[in-house]
């Protein structure tokens, strides 16, 4: 766990998890062509805990999140420096297979994006990708993932129906089920509730609470109450820099940096 760094000026007061640090981000910089989007970000993500990334729009939270499973690779002219270590392996290292990496990292997007197939096919997609054909494995995974995402009772009678027929909240939980069906270590959530109504949001938040401990969750959110409710640690980012990273309760009640205070009290952002 990084306590302090001489270069980036981030203030750290992180609550350590019982299982240690899973992801270590060291001096991570990222450029879109000429424009630098991330500046010397350094932080450790505690295994089994929920880490929230907050900050005003355009501060680089989503970019950082997508840097963790290398979804940014799809963008032309992207360049990075620094390291992101997963269990001590640099995921930007030359011998890392990005496909294998993404299988370790489930991802949930801002807008629910179920595939235009049946509910069952959606959830089993990561297994299909791995070439799993065994019907029993598929059925068990389907049931477990849907139960873990609290969707089982709602869809168990219509698993073969088109997933596009579900409501927005259900679709998002289906996407979470799909993300965890591949048995990842990390769940990356990019504003998972921003397209949902309050009831669906509450369900997703409860779900995140239940998944705590089983998965290491990194969640980007614009909703500060949500960050306060669901996360253990919170990182505040501003203009591509990590300003403060620490225990959620401290960040929201007694932040060490003036800028964080201004943001969490709603004075800007």
């Amino acid at each position: 766990m990084i306590r302090n760094s001489d270069t980036n000026g981030t203030v750290y007061h992180v609550q350590g998890g019982p299982m240690g640090t899973l992801l270590t981000i060291k001096d991570f910089c990222l450029w879109y062509g000429r424009a630098q989007a991330l500046f010397d970000v350094g932080m450790g993500v505690e295994k089994g805990l929920v880490t929230a990334l907050i900050g005003p729009s355009g501060c680089g939270k989503s970019t950082l999140l997508r840097g963790i499973n290398r979804m940014n690779d799809l963008i032309d002219g992207l360049r990075t420096s620094g390291e992101i270590l997963l269990d001590g392996t640099d995921i930007y290292g030359p011998d890392v297979d990005v496909i294998g990496l993404r299988k370790v990292m489930g991802m949930v997007f801002q807008k629910p994006n179920p595939f235009p197939m049946s509910i069952a096919d959606n959830v089993c997609y990561p297994l299909k990708v791995d070439g799993v054909r065994d019907k029993k494995t598929l059925r068990d995974t389907l049931e477990n993932a849907l139960k873990a995402s609290a969707l089982w009772d709602e869809v168990k009678d219509r698993l073969q129906d088109n997933a596009l027929g579900l409501s927005g909240g259900q679709q998002q939980r289906l996407c979470i089920a799909r993300a965890i069906a591949g048995d990842p270590e990390v769940l990356l959530m990019d504003e998972p509730c921003s397209a949902l109504d309050p009831v669906a949001t509450a369900k997703i938040e409860d779900l995140i609470d239940e998944l705590r401990g089983r998965y290491t969750i990194v969640i980007v959110t614009h909703n500060m109450q949500q960050a306060a409710r669901v996360s253990d640690n919170t990182a505040f980012m501003y203009l591509g820099k990590l300003i403060e990273y620490g225990e959620t309760s401290v960040i929201f009640t007694n932040p060490k940096v003036e800028k964080t205070m201004e943001y969490v009290t709603g004075r800007f952002g």
Binding site: M71, G100, K103, N113, F115, Y125, A179, G182
Partner: peptide, 15 residues
């Protein structure tokens, strides 16, 4: 084809 579909698939570890 929406980009979100491709991203969803790639994020599942699909090539």
């Amino acid at each position: 084809v929406p980009g979100s579909m491709r991203e969803g698939s790639l994020a599942c570890g699909a090539s």
